[in-house]
């Protein structure tokens, strides 16, 4: 398979029908639909349970009071903003480190390049909890407690191995001839990186950026350890914060579930509008070349 054919194919992962010929009989199609619908209902059931519960006792008021009288004085909207700010820092750090390293590991010739790449991949799966103690210490030394950057940094550190893998794989698919032509014209590597590599890598950058935002929205570990100020609480963190404040009484339980529904909204919107970027990004690290 040539590199260009693959690049053209990738954006269509979610819409291509490579297997359409597999279904030979109309009855089989019905069976497939039946199984998909049953599994779809099972997968959607927790969401249904959540939404149903969110209207219990107070009805729609459960939602309205979340805005008029926020739980623990932490408005839902501010958790969105906090997650967004962290996401911006996370994405900026990951993109700048991953593109430069990805360029070096795919387009520059030097001894030990593959060894360096293997060393990068070694840390692809470091559990955040395993480096929690040192990161706590580092954050203390840098005076970055209760600071968006303090959370964005360790998030980025854990995402960067993946980002480098993604950018390096993408870089390998960019034909060398483009850069060689620029080099003959006397362009430096910094110019080539900025004027040729980065513009060509835009699709990969889009995937990586969307993933950084999704992961910042998902992250509970770092904000819960590095933020003590409830005003900075992120969406994932507020799940616990609200539960601490509101307790588990049946009267409040509906309201708590309403808050959970609203806390999910940014992630759901990202998935609805960015699913293609997410799937392309997550799978480009794994697919064969």
């Amino acid at each position: 398979m040539t590199a260009t054919a693959k690049q053209q194919k990738r954006p269509n992962i979610l819409t291509a029908n490579p297997m359409s010929m597999v279904v030979t009989r109309g009855a089989d199609r019905l069976v497939i639909y039946g199984l998909l619908i049953v599994m779809g209902l099972i997968f959607a059931f927790p969401l249904y349970a959540l939404i149903r519960r969110s209207f219990e006792v107070g009805g729609i008021n459960n939602y309205i009071t979340l805005f008029t009288d926020p739980i623990g004085n932490v408005p839902i909207l501010s958790t969105y903003v906090n997650s967004l700010f962290i996401g911006v820092g996370h994405a900026a750090l990951v993109v700048s480190v991953s593109t430069t390293a990805g360029y070096a590991l795919s387009k520059l010739q030097f001894r030990g390049r593959e060894l360096t790449f293997s060393g990068v991949l070694l840390f692809l799966a470091v559990p955040g909890t395993a480096i929690l103690i040192p990161v706590y210490h580092i954050t203390q030394q840098l005076h970055l407690f209760n600071n968006y950057l303090g959370v964005a940094l360790p998030e980025a550190a854990l995402t960067i191995p993946f980002g480098v893998l993604l950018m390096r794989n993408y870089g390998r698919n960019i034909p060398d001839s483009l850069m060689e032509a620029a080099q003959l014209d006397g362009a430096s590597h910094f110019r080539i990186f900025w004027n040729i590599f980065l513009p060509l890598a835009r699709p990969a950058l889009a995937n990586l950026t969307v993933l950084c935002f999704i992961w910042s929205l998902q992250d509970f570990l770092w904000p819960s350890m590095l933020f003590t100020n409830p005003d900075l609480a992120t969406a994932a963190q507020a799940v616990k914060l609200y539960s601490n404040v509101i307790g588990q009484s049946p009267e409040q339980y509906g309201r708590y579930n309403a808050s959970l529904v609203l806390l999910a909204v940014p992630a759901v919107l990202f998935v609805i509008f960015g699913l293609r970027f997410i799937v392309n990004g997550l799978t480009s690290g794994s697919t064969k070349e």
Binding site: N17, P18, V22, P46, L47
Partner: peptide
């Protein structure tokens, strides 16, 4: 099954992929 081309495929993808993409703290709480 989804690659064979079914109707409302985007909806199916959302249903199956969404749980893994929203905060795990939320899913586990539910």
């Amino acid at each position: 099954a989804l690659a064979t081309g079914v109707r409302a495929r985007k909806l199916f993808y959302l249903v199956f992929l969404l749980p893994a993409l929203i905060p795990v703290s939320l899913v586990a709480t539910v």
